[in-house]
């Protein structure tokens, strides 16, 4: 367990350091997310009531596409300089490599989402910046990044490459999206907890299931 934890920590810190020096991922993801939110506000022309119903969709679509951008870059960076081979040669469990990469991706995506909450609160005049929504954001991005990290490792080895990740990821992430969007809308419309609490349970269950499955399969995906 300590070997596992230390390996996860080391890979996570490596990604943090690389990002701190290049500021490549966060910059691209944040700019994309900002543009997406602005484009949505023009495209939907929402009135005050419609906003509360539709805003969680805007938030989640933006977060998912920003995460796809980040996941593709994050996994491609490892391949470009052959670092993934070095990681695989190291005497550490494959699941630890996966979990370290995943944690870094999750942190980036969650940071982008967390930055969007106050911004959208201001722009759309809907109280998104609240603890329950932040909790949902952490749970939703967890599942998206855990499947996304695995699928990006697969799709980047295909002929179509980066374009295949959204196609492979979106349908797999749909149960997560449906749960988070419904629960977020429930919170925003002040619906009783009974109406949307079930979705939170589904969300957490799927998170757990995907985490176990993806950690188990990463070794199969990267074997040579």
């Amino acid at each position: 367990m300590t070997v596992f934890a230390r390996a996860v920590g080391a890979i996570f810190l490596k990604d943090m350091r690389a990002e701190w020096r290049s500021r490549e991922l966060i910059g691209v993801m944040l700019l994309f997310a900002l543009l997406s939110v602005l484009v949505f506000s023009f495209a939907l022309e929402l009135d005050r009531l419609a906003r509360r119903e539709a805003i969680s969709g805007v938030l989640w679509v933006t977060v998912v596409f920003a995460s796809v951008l980040g996941l593709n870059r994050s996994v491609a960076q490892e391949r470009e300089n052959g670092n993934v081979d070095a990681l695989l040669l190291a005497p550490i469990p494959r699941a630890a490599i996966f979990f370290g990469k995943f944690l870094a991706n999750w942190l980036f995506t969650a940071v982008i989402g967390a930055l969007l909450l106050p911004l959208m609160t201001v722009l759309y005049n809907v109280t998104l910046a609240s603890l329950p929504v932040l909790g949902l954001l952490l749970a939703g991005t967890w599942g998206i990044c855990v499947t996304g990290t695995l699928l990006a490792s697969m799709t980047l080895q295909t002929r179509v490459g980066e374009a295949l990740l959204p196609i492979a990821l979106l349908p797999i992430a749909l149960p997560l999206l449906l749960g988070t969007v419904r629960a977020t809308t429930g919170i925003l419309t002040d619906a009783p907890v009974n109406d949307w609490g079930g979705w939170v349970g589904i969300l957490l269950g799927i998170d757990l299931f995907y985490t176990v499955v993806c950690m188990a399969f990463y070794g199969v995906v990267v074997e040579e």
Binding site: T147, L150, L151, M154, T155, Q157, T158, R159, V160, L164, I167, A168, P171, I172, L174, P175, I206, F209, Y210, V213, C214, F217, V220, V221, E223
Partner: peptide, 30 residues
């Protein structure tokens, strides 16, 4: 359908079979 697209994008037989197996199992969640 995404499963079929992932399959068709991989030239190496072993890789194709491995990825298809993983994606086929994940896809059952839907």
């Amino acid at each position: 359908i995404a499963y079929l697209m992932v399959r068709s994008g991989i030239e190496n037989r072993d890789t194709r079979h491995r990825f298809a197996a993983v994606y086929g199992i994940l896809a059952f969640s839907s």
